[in-house]
Measured scan of single mutants.
Amino acid sequence: TTITITINGEELRIRGDHEEIHKILKAWEEDHNDEEIVRLIRELAER
């Protein structure tokens, strides 16, 4: 699965399995701050 998210003008492409993507979207849905979401995404992007 690949998704693209733009946060603060920075486009981040994430490839991951369903569970990893779900974790990010769940954090977003629960209204975590952008920095935390960006950190989760970067961790995935670095793999």
Rank of each mutant, 00 (worst) to 15 (best):
I5P: 00
H18G: 06
I7T: 01
A27T: 06
E30V: 13
R47V: 11
I37K: 02
I21D: 01
R13I: 11
E46N: 09
R15C: 04
A27G: 05
E29Q: 14
L44I: 06
K23Q: 09
D31H: 12
D31C: 08
L25G: 01
E29N: 13
V38M: 15
E36N: 12
R39M: 05
I21R: 01
T6P: 02
V38P: 03
N8Q: 09
L40F: 04
G9V: 02
D34P: 11
E43G: 05
K26S: 08
T1P: 06
I5Y: 03
L40Q: 06
R15G: 03
R42H: 04
I5K: 00
G16C: 06
L12A: 01
E10W: 14
E46I: 14
W28M: 07
L40K: 08
I7H: 02
T2M: 14
A45S: 05
G9D: 03
I24D: 00
E35S: 09
R42D: 02
R39Q: 06
R42C: 07
T2D: 07
I41S: 01
I3L: 13
E29H: 12
I3W: 08
D17V: 07
L44N: 02
N8I: 02
D31Q: 10
R42K: 09
K23C: 02
R15T: 08
V38H: 07
R39T: 05
E10P: 00
E20Y: 11
D34A: 13
V38F: 14
L12R: 02
I41R: 00
G16Y: 06
E19G: 07
G9C: 02
E10K: 15
I14R: 00
I41G: 00
I24M: 08
T2S: 09
A45K: 04
V38Y: 15
E46T: 10
L25C: 04
D17R: 08
E20R: 03
N33S: 08
E19K: 11
E43M: 15
H22K: 10
I5Q: 00
E35T: 09
T2P: 04
I37T: 07
G9W: 04
H22A: 13
T6F: 15
I41D: 00
T1E: 12
D17Q: 09
N8D: 09
R42N: 04
I14S: 00
I24A: 03
I14E: 00
T1F: 15
R15S: 08
T2F: 15
L25D: 00
I3D: 01
I7Q: 01
R42A: 04
K23N: 07
H32K: 14
H32D: 07
D17Y: 11
H18I: 12
L44M: 10
I14N: 00
I37V: 11
H18C: 12
K26F: 08
E35D: 08
I24S: 01
I3C: 11
R15K: 06
R15A: 06
I21Y: 03
I21V: 09
E46Q: 11
I24E: 00
N8T: 02
K26N: 06
E43W: 15
A45D: 04
K26E: 04
E30C: 04
W28L: 11
E30L: 15
T2K: 04
R47D: 06
E11R: 15
R42Q: 06
E46K: 13
I7W: 08
N8P: 01
I14H: 01
E19A: 11
R15F: 14
N8S: 05
H18V: 11
G9F: 04
E29T: 13
H18Y: 15
W28V: 03
G16R: 03
G9L: 02
I5F: 09
I5D: 00
T4R: 09
V38N: 04
W28C: 03
G16I: 07
I3E: 01
R15Y: 11
T4F: 13
E35C: 09
H32C: 02
E29A: 10
I14L: 13
V38I: 13
R42L: 11
T6H: 09
I37W: 05
G9S: 03
I14D: 00
T2I: 12
T6K: 11
K23P: 03
K23E: 05
R13W: 14
L44T: 02
I21W: 05
E19Q: 09
N33G: 10
V38R: 10
V38Q: 11
E35L: 11
V38G: 05
L12I: 05
K26H: 06
E35Y: 08
R15H: 10
G16S: 06
N8A: 08
I5V: 07
E29G: 11
N33L: 14
L12E: 00
E11H: 14
E11Q: 15
E43R: 15
L25I: 06
G9R: 03
I21G: 01
H32W: 08
I7F: 08
L40W: 05
L44P: 00
T4H: 06
E20C: 03
E20H: 06
R42F: 05
K26T: 06
T1A: 11
D31S: 10
I24H: 01
N33Q: 07
D17G: 07
K26P: 00
N33T: 11
E20P: 02
E46S: 11
E29W: 11
T1Y: 15
E29R: 15
R13L: 04
E11V: 15
L12N: 01
K23G: 06
W28F: 07
H18N: 09
I5N: 00
H32G: 08
K23A: 12
E36H: 12
G16D: 03
H22N: 10
I3P: 01
H18Q: 09
R13Y: 09
R39C: 03
E10V: 15
E46F: 13
E20N: 05
E11L: 15
E11W: 14
E35F: 07
E46R: 15
R47W: 09
R47C: 10
K26G: 03
I41W: 03
I37F: 12
N33V: 14
T4P: 01
E10G: 05
K23I: 07
N8K: 07
H32F: 09
I37H: 02
A45H: 05
D17P: 10
A45F: 09
R39D: 03
I7A: 01
I14Q: 00
E19W: 12
T6S: 08
E19L: 10
T2Y: 15
D34L: 13
T4K: 10
D34Y: 12
A27C: 06
N33M: 14
D17L: 08
L44A: 04
R47F: 12
T4A: 06
R47E: 09
A45P: 01
I24F: 05
K26D: 04
T1Q: 11
L25Q: 03
E36T: 09
L40S: 03
H22T: 12
I3M: 11
N8R: 12
E43S: 10
L44D: 01
L40I: 08
I3H: 06
